[in-house]
């Protein structure tokens, strides 16, 4: 046997090894992600039948026309994007100083302890955390009872848990660790001599932050934005519980169309549309920040 063919065989067996290793997650992704997704896309082009769960297999784009023209869906999509944008903005803007503090002002031996503390909210289920906010903001919640006890109000305020702010607070709280960690990692990677160089070249600490630290930490910020923005657009638990469903988002409508109203094709079309919008916005965001992401260190 020649050495070339032996090497070829070894490479092939290495490749086989690699495929073998990724096979389980690949299968998992195929069955539980790609297949359902394909089903949803397929359903979105079908026609709704009158029976329960009935779908008539006739190709149509009318679902999409309805999804994109009905003012209700447009309004809900708009509100979803508005809420997600606010949540993302708040979460990332508030997460940055925390990540910065841990990276720059916590002694190296204490950093893992801080990260551990930051992940504590993950120890409880998201549902519990949402209910916690309900306890704080609800009809007989902490805020209302407190204000009543202080004599500032006679009757509990009903609006404080039925507004966008309550939703933003709940979601920002839930997603904070997701935003802190990637920013922290990006900040950790920055060679500290860059910051000294910035000051050495005549810039104050603040200007050095804006000209050196921030641009170099942008990969972490971009990751944080995507990690927070994408799932919050699709969130339906929070609007359901906070405010008792009086401020539905696009995901609540998709859920209703699919289950309560039993119009699977329309629900699927709205879902696919929402996915496309989120995907496009995320891609645009990455594109805008491409120059920061290409930086090699």
């Amino acid at each position: 046997m020649t050495s070339a063919s032996r090497r070829g065989r070894r490479l092939r067996s290495q490749a086989a090894n690699g495929y073998g290793m990724i096979a389980p997650p690949a299968l998992y992704a195929l069955l539980l992600l790609a297949l359902p997704l394909a089903t949803v896309v397929y359903l979105s082009f079908m026609t709704d039948g009158t029976g329960v769960r009935e779908v008539i297999r006739t190709f149509t784009v009318s679902n999409y026309i309805q999804a994109w023209t009905d003012p209700i869906y447009r309004a809900l999509m708009g509100r979803s994007l508005f809420v997600s944008t606010l949540v993302t903005l708040f979460t990332v803007v508030l997460a940055y100083p925390v990540a910065y503090f841990v990276s720059f002002h916590v002694s190296p031996s204490r950093k893992s302890l801080w990260l551990f503390l930051i992940t504590i909210p993950f120890w409880t289920s998201y549902l519990v955390r949402v209910f916690l906010w309900k306890v704080i903001l609800g009809y007989n919640g902490v805020v209302n009872s407190g204000l009543k006890a202080l004599g500032i109000i006679d009757q509990p305020l009903t609006w404080i848990n039925v507004n966008v702010g309550a939703m933003v607070a709940t979601l920002a709280h839930a997603y904070a660790p997701f935003a802190i960690l990637p920013i922290f990692v990006a900040l950790e990677k920055i060679d500290r001599s860059f910051l000294e160089a910035g000051q050495d070249l005549g810039e104050s600490r603040l200007m050095t932050f804006f000209r050196v630290t921030l641009p170099l930490s942008m990969p972490g910020v971009v990751a944080a934005v995507l990690i927070v923005f994408i799932p919050t657009v699709g969130d339906y638990v929070t609007p359901d519980i906070i405010g008792g469903g009086k401020l539905p988002l696009i995901a609540n409508v998709i859920q209703k169309e699919l289950l309560a109203i039993d119009n699977m094709p329309l629900g699927s079309a709205i879902a696919v549309s929402a996915m496309l919008i989120v995907g496009t916005l995320s891609a645009l965001f990455v594109l805008v920040n491409a120059r920061f992401l290409k930086v090699k260190k």
């Binding site: 860059f194 000051q199 050495d200 070249l201 005549g202 920061f292």
Partner: peptide
Amino acid sequence: VPANKRPTNMVFQSYAIFPH
């Protein structure tokens, strides 16, 4: 007098060339 106000400039051991 902070570093940014001193009439000195430094060539760092790592060079600290801004990668971005």
